[in-house]
Every structure is written in C-alpha cells, then in structure tokens.
Computed example of a mutant assay.
Amino acid sequence: MTSDRPAARVVCVDALGRVLLMRWRDTVSGEVFWEPPGGGIDAGETPLAAARRELTEETGLPGEAVLDTWIPVPRDFHWLGVHYVKVEPFYLARFAAVPEAAPVVLTAEESETCLGSAWLSSAEIAALPDPVKPPDVVEIAAELVRRAEGCASGA
C-alpha cells in the first residue's frame, strides 16, 4: 500500500546549533531510525498549525517557536507496512537555550514506537548507528536557518 498523507515536520535548532531528532522503531519492519518531530496534517489544519501541534505533542516544546519559514522536502519511506511518497514542508524552530524535550501527548501508535529524542550536533548525527530520515537533515537545518536569517535581515 502507498500513501501520500500530508504531513509537516519541524527542524529544531538549539543555542548550541544542535538539531533535535526523535528516535523511532517501526514495529512491522523492526527498523530503528531518527527524524525531526512532526506528523500528519489533520483535516482543516494548515501545515504550519500541524507543525506547531506536532512539536508540542511529541516534544513538549512550545508550538509558537515554529517559524513560518519552511522548505519542501521530498520523502520516500516505509512506516508500519505503508509506503509513503510525498513532499513535506519542514519548518524551523529556534531556541535561545537548550530546552529539554519530552513527549506530552502521543497516540497509541507513537507510544509503542517512540524511543526518545536527543539534541545532536552535525558530527553526532553523522556518527549515529541508525539511519537519519531524511539523510540530509543537517543541510536542511542549515538552509532553514539561512532563510530565517535572510528574512530577519530583510534580504
């Protein structure tokens, strides 16, 4: 089965320039991987609203931290026996400190599959033994930060 269910993700960058990644285990394939927080867009919800909601639910971080700065990211992955092929908006959230992240509201599926989260440097991401999805998340984070700084400076 293939799905193109709309979803949005959030690339969180802390005061040390690290990226927050969630660690998941697919209970069908057994694969363990890391990816930015995010998830499905509910009916009537904008991608930005979904990104803000998902960030708070999955990490406890404030949804208002998600900026209206995003880039489209092609995705092609399997999750729980479903093949997803789509383009997701990846938004940016920046934090002046190093906030602690912990889930607040997880679905039953997420509770069974979420293995935690971590703030990771680009070197730590490159050294992870499990795959990172998408694999170019460090470059995506850098592009989002560049765009946000360009907007802030009026460029």
Rank of each mutant, 00 (worst) to 15 (best):
A8I: 03
R9N: 12
V10I: 00
V10H: 01
V10D: 04
V10W: 01
V11F: 06
V13A: 11
V13M: 05
A15E: 14
L16A: 13
G17N: 07
G17H: 07
R18F: 02
L20Q: 12
M22A: 15
R23N: 02
T27G: 12
V28L: 11
E31G: 15
V32Y: 14
P36R: 05
P36A: 12
P36I: 01
G38E: 04
G38D: 03
G40C: 07
I41G: 02
A43C: 10
G44W: 15
G44T: 11
G44C: 13
E45S: 12
L48P: 02
L48G: 03
A50T: 09
A50K: 01
A51R: 04
R52H: 05
R53C: 03
E54N: 04
L55A: 09
T56H: 09
E58I: 04
T59H: 02
G60N: 09
L61R: 01
W70I: 02
W70A: 04
P72T: 00
D76M: 08
F77D: 01
F77A: 04
W79S: 04
W79K: 02
G81T: 06
G81M: 05
H83D: 00
V87G: 09
Y91D: 00
L92W: 04
A93I: 03
A101I: 04
V105C: 04
V105L: 06
V105H: 03
L106Q: 01
T107Y: 01
A108E: 13
E109S: 06
S111G: 08
L115G: 08
L115F: 13
G116S: 08
G116I: 03
A118H: 05
W119C: 03
L120G: 00
S121F: 09
S121R: 07
A123K: 12
I125C: 14
A126T: 07
L128S: 09
P129K: 12
D130S: 10
P135A: 13
V138C: 15
E139M: 15
A141Y: 11
A141R: 08
A142K: 12
E143P: 02
L144E: 10
L144Y: 01
L144P: 04
L144R: 09
V145C: 14
R147G: 15
R147F: 12
